[in-house]
């Protein structure tokens, strides 16, 4: 569990984003238990109050749920995770495409570049 914190941005949001990425990737599998607020605070070296706020934010996405006295668990509903992953991916694509289009590339050029990049890998 690693957190890269940039002190110029709200820390709780960076924690939410990191945890969402980890859930989407399956690092925290569906139904699995998330580390406690204190553990995340220790790993990220931030104030537990900040992590607590991040967890509240995370709960609002429906990706996790807190059971009183037991901890915070990733949802067992894989559809929610999948939806969230796609939603996030779509947002990233939209952002990316916007920037590419600003360069004046056509759809065909974009497709060709993508194919070339894939061959390079």
């Amino acid at each position: 569990m690693q957190f890269e914190i940039d002190e110029r941005q709200p820390i709780y949001r960076q924690i939410v984003e990191t945890l969402i990425r980890q859930i989407a990737r399956g690092f925290w599998p569906p139904g699995g238990k998330l580390p406690s607020i204190r553990e995340v605070a220790a790993a990220a070296r931030v104030n537990p109050n900040t992590v607590s706020r991040a967890f509240q934010e995370l709960e609002r996405t429906g990706l996790v749920a807190t059971r009183r006295g037991e901890g915070t668990f990733v949802t067992t509903n894989t559809q929610v995770i999948k939806d969230y992953r796609e939603k996030t991916a779509r947002a990233l694509w939209t952002d990316f495409l916007g920037k590419i289009r600003e360069l004046g590339l056509t759809n065909e050029e974009i497709q060709r570049l993508l194919a070339e990049l894939r061959e390079d890998e």
């Binding site: 002190e7 941005q9 709200p10 820390i11 949001r13 990220a44 070296r45 931030v46 706020r53």
Partner: peptide, 28 residues
């Protein structure tokens, strides 16, 4: 990273104060 709230003091006056996170979001 451990502060919830920060108070900047300058010459005996509060120059700026607020939630650390809010200040980060506002000012970058």
């Amino acid at each position: 990273p451990i502060f919830d709230h920060v108070i900047f003091l300058r010459q005996g006056r509060v120059a700026l104060e607020g939630e650390a996170e809010a200040l980060r979001a506002e000012t970058g």
